[in-house]
Amino acid sequence: MSDKPRVATVSLCGCFGCHMSLLDIDERILQLVQLVSFDRTPLTDIKTIGDCDLGLIEGGVANAENVEVLREFRGHCKVLVAVGACAVNGGIPTMRNQFSLRECLDESYVNGVGVYHPGIPTDAEIPLLLNQVHPIHEVVKVDYFIPGCPPSADTLWTFLTELLAGQPIAFPYTQIRYD
């Protein structure tokens, strides 16, 4: 076992844009792997989470599985971070909160354009949707918030390097963005 801090990441109700932004740190990723080792994350394809120092959550909470995964992360991570607009405030998916779940599903699976076999899926394998989409801090305690859709690679780099160096996080003006 390495004694480097272990990091896990996941995308809940998100678009993986925040993960893409993390990859946008480009060659600095070589520095990053010197600093940390990765646990569960789409980058390693590890499917279950072990005890970690840092958990990065992309995406909001939209269904039962999101809740379960988010709680697992909270349970295993010393520090949990909301990364990006959807984790921070629910983001674009919360636009469905303007409607009832029934209206949303009817629009997608019954009345929508190009629907051939109308009917709302009820398969037990499919996680049930929550009545509304929520930011992650409504479900678990969150230690840090990084806004942005997505946060820029520089923003993520600032956060990771300062956190790992044990410094207070101080973003320059151009790195705090909500869009």
Binding site: N89, T94, H134, Y144, F145
Partner: peptide
């Protein structure tokens, strides 16, 4: 950095 409070939507 974040709205902090539970959103009212």
């Amino acid at each position: 950095l974040a709205p902090h409070y539970p959103p009212f939507f």
